[in-house]
Design a binder for these strands. Structure first.
Lengths: 385, 385
DNA sequence: GTGAAAGCGCTAACAG
DNA sequence: CTGTTAGCGCTTTCAC
């Protein structure tokens, strides 16, 4: 890598010139532009102040005259200088690195829109706040799953981590993370996770009740519920909300057929036949997420079952799948991007020194009525709520 | 943060003990476990060698006796030591950071499965190779789009960048990246990008021809093509392949109706009505990607058009959408994860010192026949290829 | 083979 | 308000 000399007198050794620039504040100081990335010292030299002062300006520190501040910024612009994050991190312990932990097996599962939406939301907020985001997919059934996330934090000196279910309720993991001087923010923690760290989510019980009530209002009486993995506490809460709504309507929650999938399209498809083949099949199938609902819908199509004419199917999350399939899915909107953004903000606040007790932010959800749910076959439509 | 003393005699000041550990190789050397992260010096002290030696062992360098090598590794294990990437990067200029540039507007577009698959593939390979991945979404129509990716590279000292279309063919961008001492790898470059940097992709022209031929074989004669953005050269090549196949079959390529979307479901849905309302509507609609095909399919459903009975629709990419919708999409499989993995490997090789001329790796594609395409209405099925 | 010494570029006390 | 002095933890010459 050769130095590039912008202005120099003929016959002057370029190397010498650049050395001169490096060790003296001579007349060449401004004329020489090196191809090597400028350092904070270059900036300091360029505007004749101490390195510390530049550092203060860069970090918005106090005790710098406005006039100097301006000059420093001018030099920064002039030299096209930017801080070396590695050096900053080494010296100050500020890696400005955040991580998003997603529960999924990179090898087995197809990409999930849920995770993708969360990542996008986090990415956007990180961009604005000047953080970098590392996304890590961890298979939730691996015995060393905790070690995998801790390893990432240690190795990258992450300052904050976002945990999705079921990690969001893994208090042991959360505490291990905090022991590493790293902040944690839980996305949709369903229980214990809320006390251990900041969290963000919707009122899952209410959301479950809302979608159930909507189906009850449409006239449905025979329900089936497609649940997710047991460790996903938020999803369990939705289930509880659903049961509560059923009971409130005078129905017996224990009569609803329950099957458990793993939130994938595939599991949704695999579980549907047994539901359809029951002696008295449900008229409404409430699924714990959109992907499983899509799987169920696909099976219904395959069997020529009219949706929603004969079977109503609902999802949860309102991810893009719900708009892409036919009929478009009636589902519960969950503001995933905003949730991730909120998690990043919470982390940013903690990194900034906020020591208040863990906070849980509840964002609002909404039942989105599209076309996959309607009145049950032969039912008179009851008065709408 | 308090030091944790594993073994100590009563009355000994913990702090003193840890100081002793720090400055002497006394009897406490092994007994003391500090909560502070161990450094390379701790390891060196632990097994009585110089820091340099530990560094050599860690980096697989030469000139270390095997016996010493073993001891060093033992100490590393014993202390649960791991290198500080920031420090390593500062000293050696190895950030081990890669970036994936995706063309999309974080605010406007829904998450794309295409980008997601690429990211997952890259993530997996990075994990194995010890790199970290930064994903950056850049809106392709922003005037400062190039600056955004260069900024990321500069600020994070990325050693390699993967470019997706249309960035994959932006030679000016590629050269700017290389000028920053960063390697570039192009995913599906369609033209110029191939000469400027390593690349990976499928034979797009052949893939376009294959899917067209398949439809011709099914008996279709009236085609429509839903193209993507013009800058996506790989997609343009598919278009060329399609035209070639048509011509080879004695059909006039100029007779196929062409509309241009932006690869989103929404654009696919928006563009379909005009195709359907033509005086002689197509019997086969070939789309440049799965999302647009899904959009088209959705419109067909809405109008009660039987797919594939009256209209055949095909996608491209074989992303998860194609399996989730009904009927499942006939499409062209593109090994997106493998492509991203290959790009990471190429980058890794370059970082490792490979200076050979840019290489383009062609992976194989395949027409995946599902249910969205069939014989045109009233046609006798021609002999299959 | 191994070690000592010199930084990489930055932040953070601590003086003035 | 500003500058001086130490490191942060590691890689890399260069001696031995």
């Amino acid at each position: 890598m050769r130095d590039i000399i912008a202005t120099t007198s003929p016959g002057v050794d370029p190397l010498l010139t650049s050395v001169r620039r490096a060790y003296a504040l001579g007349p060449f100081a401004e004329a020489v532009v090196s191809s090597k990335k400028p350092t904070i010292d270059d900036v300091a030299r360029h505007c004749g102040v101490a390195r510390t002062t530049v550092s203060r300006v860069l970090n918005g520190g106090p005790n710098v005259r406005d006039e100097v501040r301006q000059r420093v910024w001018a030099s920064v612009k002039a030299l096209d200088y930017r801080v070396n994050p590695q050096a900053r991190s080494l010296a100050g312990g500020q890696s400005r690195m955040l991580a998003l932990i997603v529960a999924s097996d990179l090898d087995a599962q197809p990409n999930s829109f849920y995770a993708s939406a969360l990542e996008l939301g986090a990415l956007r907020e990180c961009l604005g706040l000047g953080y970098q985001l590392l996304t890590r997919h961890v298979a939730q059934d691996r015995p060393n799953r905790r070690e995998q996330v801790l390893e990432l934090i240690r190795s990258q000196r992450c300052q904050g981590v976002m945990l999705t279910p079921p990690f969001a309720d893994d208090v042991e993991l959360i505490e291990s993370i905090q022991a590493l001087d790293c902040h944690a923010a839980c996305i949709s923690p369903g229980g214990a996770g809320r006390d251990a760290a900041d969290g963000v989510g919707i009122d899952d019980a209410a959301a479950g009740a809302d979608i159930a009530r909507r189906m009850i209002d449409l006239g449905h009486r025979r329900f089936a519920f497609m649940a997710g993995i047991p460790g996903h506490l938020a999803a369990e809460r939705r289930h509880e909300g659903l049961r509560g709504a059923l009971a409130a309507a005078g129905l017996d929650p224990d009569e609803v057929a329950v099957v458990r999938g793993d939130f994938t399209f595939r599991s949704g498809a695999a579980l549907t036949p047994q539901l359809l083949e029951a002696p008295t099949p449900p008229t409404a199938l409430i699924c714990a997420n959109d992907d499983m609902a899509a799987g169920a819908l696909s099976v219904a199509h395959g069997r020529g079952i009219d949706v929603p004419g004969r079977l109503s199917i609902t999802g949860f999350d309102d991810t893009p799948v719900s708009e892409v399939i036919w009929p478009p899915l009636t589902t519960v909107h969950q503001p995933l991007r905003e949730m991730a953004g909120e998690a990043v903000r919470a982390l940013s606040g903690r990194i900034g020194g906020d020591r208040s007790p863990p906070r849980f932010v509840t964002l609002s959800h909404a039942v989105v009525e599209r076309a996959s749910a309607g009145a049950p076959p032969g039912a008179r439509l009851r008065a709408r709520a």
